[in-house]
Every structure is written in C-alpha cells, then in structure tokens.
Write a protein that binds this DNA or RNA. Structure first.
Lengths: 283, 283
DNA sequence: ATAATAGTGTCTATCAGACATTATCTG
DNA sequence: CAGATAATGTCTGATAGACACTATTAT
C-alpha cells in the first residue's frame, strides 16, 4: 500500500496510524532484560597464542567467578553501540573490530531474572593494561587455549585455571547436520553464566570466517610482519599453516612498507614489514 | 572459586547467593520487547527460483504492508522455540531447517515501542498452502528475486510488487572492510519495519554458507534429482553453476535410490533420484 | 528426426599441502 | 662458524571453471 495513503488508513478500531500510536499501550507482555557480552581477544606478548579479557564478578550471582565483560543495552542505542561502549570502558580502545556473534536466550541462563544476551566479538591489536570496571572486582587477560578436545583459560599471575573438556556431538537441523561442542567443567573454577557456550560459538564462527574475512589483520598492529600475521591466523585456527601457502594466500592483500624489523626476540633474519593494502581486504 | 564454597560466599551486603536472589529486585532498567522474525524460504513450483512467505499486516503500524512472520518470545522458551512455534503456526511444518541469523536493535525500528528482533531463517522443502494467522490479514508466498543490484518480491495473483534497488557500500570494521547492500525503495508497496534489512542479512549469510553447509538439501524433498538440487543452489546463489563441477562437488554427499524420474514437465531424459547420504553432510 | 534435458569426459588454472633450498641475522 | 629465523622455489593432489560430447526422453 502506498506510503502516503497509509497516513489516513484506519484500522478495525477506526484509528489512523498516528492515533493508534498515540493510544498504544505496550501491554502486559513480560519483557526480558537485554545485555551484551563481549569476547575481547588479542595476541599474547610473544605472538604464540590468544588472550581473552575476563572480569571477576564482585557480586552475586556467580560472585568471584570470572566472566565476559558486558552490560545492559539502553533504550536509545543499538546493541553494537552498547558493546562498543563497554569495550571502550574496559580497554580504552575505539575503532576496534567488533561483530555480533549470536544471541543467547536459554531460560534460566541468569538466575536473577529473564535475561537474553547478544554476544559480540572484539579483536584488539595489542594488550593494554586493563582497569577493573564498576561492577567488577578485577579484570585481567587470560591465556586462551581452544582445541578440539578442551578449552583452557589461565592466568599465571593470579594462579587461576579454568578448564573444560569438549565433546563433539552431531546435531541435526532439518536436512543438515552440524557438529557441536559440548563442554564439561574440569577445574575448580568456572566461567560465570553460560559464558563458555558464548566462547565456543564465537570461536567457531571466527574460525569459519578468518580465512575469508581477514579478521587476522585486526589482531596485529597496522604495520606487521608476515611471521606475526601468520601466528595470528594460527592462534585462531589452532593449527599450523605452511609458510609458503600462507604467504601466497595473503600476498595480494598486503603492501611492503620498505622497512625491515625483528619479529622475535631471539636470533634469525629480520622480517619485512607490511601494511594492509587499501581496499584490498573486501570479500 | 569452587562451586560449593560459593554457596556460603557473602557479597558486600553480607548476603549469600540464595539470599541475594530471593531479595533481588529487577530494578527500573527499561526493558525492550523481544520478537523473532522469520524468513521462510522455499523453491517455487518449477524449481526456477525462490519463494518467501509474507503476511499482510492487519493493524497499525504498517497496516496493509507485507511483512515477515514473527512473534513475541515468551519467558520460558528459547528464541529458537518461539521461531519454531511461529513457523509451525504459519506453515504447519515441524523439523524444518531453522537457524538464527542476526539480531536487529536499531532504536525506532518499531514505532510503537522499544522492540528488538532476533531474525531466523527457515528453509522448507515444498510450498504448502498457507493460512493467514491471528494478527495477519493475509499470508502468501512471494517470488523472491535477489540480485546484486535489486530485490524484487512479487505475487502475481494478488498483483503485488515490492522492489528495492541495492547499492553496494564499503563498510569498515577495525582493519577489515566489508561490502554492505544499501536498499532504496522503488515500488509503491514496501516491506514493513526494517524487514528489507533482515532479508538482506539473511540472504547474505545463506549465500556465504550454502556451499559449505549444505542448506540446499533443505530446499528439496528428501528424495531429489540432481537437476532439482542444482537449481536450489543456483536460486540461492543467484548465479548458474557448471553442471559437471556441481555434480563432482555433491557426489560424495548423496546416494542413488535406484529409481529414476522426471525433474521437469517438458521433454528430455529422466533423472536419477538420490537421497542425502547418512552422516555425509557434516562439515 | 529434432529439440530438450540428463549425465560424463577432459583440459586448464588455481591453490593448499608438503618439503626443500636459499638468504640473513645473532652470537 | 653454528643455530635460528625469513623468504622463496617447486612438486603434487584436489577442485572450480569451462566446454565438448554422449545418452535418453517427448513430440
């Protein structure tokens, strides 16, 4: 129906759209709280693996448990904005890769009340110091080890180890069957709420996408060496890549800066430095 | 922290978790309504393209506009359940492919009140008659034409044409740049709310996944011929596939039933019939 | 027979996997 | 020099794109 003719169109109660909206009563539908939870990932200091930012909860429920940072969505912002705001509060960083992963709605996932959570994934190029936030007692980067059979989150300084074993389970959706990871806790400490499941979904999605969507570039500095970039791919995928194939794959996405520098502390040849080619990463 | 020791752990107000939860007050945070919107796609009668199920709105806002079916999520169900329930109400079908696509949160996307929507994609193997639902004045299958430059939704019987032109726009997220489709309305009639954007996101995601996740099998009957399956791939991708390459690609996922039958009405050789190989579609 | 559709054969370009070799740096 | 790391060369096998050809059916 034409947009302009809709202005005078009356519904079965004889109301125009304007009148309807003025009289609209949100009604008694129960509404959930909606939060964002953010996976903030970065490479560790020596480019050997991933780190994830966790906060320690200072109140019930899951008091003293480590959890993904997150917060409520406010009425006049998008979920993306809410996630970006939380990300900046936690790390001070703006303009970072931030992407919606999945929305978690299982009843009872928060013992307080009905809460659904929109999960986001953020990728940061370096690990800055983190300051504990309002509701958090503490905040820290954890080493993340995600394999086909287990997830380990550890922080040696704080002597914390959180470990889940993973079992693959076939799962059928119409004619299609997927493999899902089913976690079971293997350590004294655990992640709060359903945050393991969020972590699993986010890692699965990132692994599926990284070879095509170039998110690895978000895990290194804007000027990077190929050994650095390769370890970003390898850390996400959890498997080694052949150097030559890797370099062939990225060769048309990068430009040399002209300078050379050291990728590692120990000996060996220096690496050429590159930047991402302008407009070269679009799929 | 150990799970059992947490039972006695008191927060800064001196409350255990049990006491805290009992006294918990959801507070004055404003909460959004949460709905699911579902893209229900199927192949048209002669396997030449996709159809999408739309309902005609019987009340404000967007009265008389065509819209995606959907409904509110209730407190003790997952969003998936809510979507499956709506799908069954609308089509009578159960056990259909149904997958979460994206969650839409833009303020003002519903003029009534704060509403966020979790979008789902459903793929049905055949088009049954649809019965208009409670809040809907009408329901019908529309031909869907989604190209790089436009979206057309049409129903000849009802003489409805909804058309948007698409412009590709680069969009930068951290170090990564994507291409997004920006729709602009080109017809008298329009889709309700932000449902064009939902349609665009769902089609983008389906196109990215179909070659790896085998969703095309959900668009054909459990017994299918290769011409039928190929047209399902082609309808989704919006481009022709080479017959031989296509057949090589799917050859290890299917088993012959032994029978042969006609894929089309008009002349030509009969096609062999296949079924999806058991456990053969897992990625 | 002819047109239309189903199904197969084969060549090429590309690319990931795999491994070897050369180049450069530190000590 | 040795040991370590960076960078490149080359072979193989799998696969998508491209096109040609054979097989079967309706009219």
């Amino acid at each position: 129906m034409k947009t302009n003719s809709r202005a005078n169109r009356k519904n079965k109660d004889g109301l125009t759209e304007k009148q309807f909206l003025k009289a609209y009563n949100p009604g008694d539908y129960k509404r959930p709280s909606v939060t964002t939870d953010i996976l903030i990932l970065g490479m560790n200091e020596d480019h050997s693996g991933l780190k994830i930012l966790l906060i320690k909860r200072g109140n019930h429920p899951f008091i003293d448990c480590w959890a993904l940072p997150g917060g409520f969505i406010e009425e006049n912002e998008t979920a993306y904005r809410a996630a970006a705001r939380e990300l900046e509060e936690e790390t001070g960083l703006k303009g970072i890769y931030l992407d919606q992963v999945y929305t978690f709605t299982k009843p009872g996932r928060d013992p307080r009340t009905w809460v659904i959570s929109i999960a986001y994934l953020a990728l940061v190029p370096k690990l800055d110091e983190v300051k504990g936030c309002d509701d958090a007692e503490d905040a820290a980067w954890f080493d993340l080890n995600f394999t086909d059979t287990s997830i380990e989150l550890s922080n040696d300084e704080k002597d914390v180890l959180i470990k889940y074993s993973l079992k693959k389970e076939a799962f059928s959706n119409g004619a299609v069957t997927y493999e899902n990871y089913i976690p079971s806790l293997k350590s004294e400490e655990a992640l709060a709420f359903d945050h393991v499941e969020i972590l699993i979904e986010a890692m699965k999605k990132l692994r599926e996408q990284i070879l095509y969507n170039d998110q690895a570039f978000c895990l290194v500095d804007s000027k990077f060496t190929l050994p650095e970039l390769q370890s970003a791919y390898e850390a996400v995928l959890g498997r080694p890549l052949y150097k030559k194939s890797f370099r062939d794959m990225v060769s048309d996405k990068i430009t040399e800066t002209g300078t050379e520098r050291r990728s590692v502390i120990k000996g060996g040849r220096t690496s050429k430095e590159y930047v991402l080619k302008k407009g070269g990463s679009g799929s």
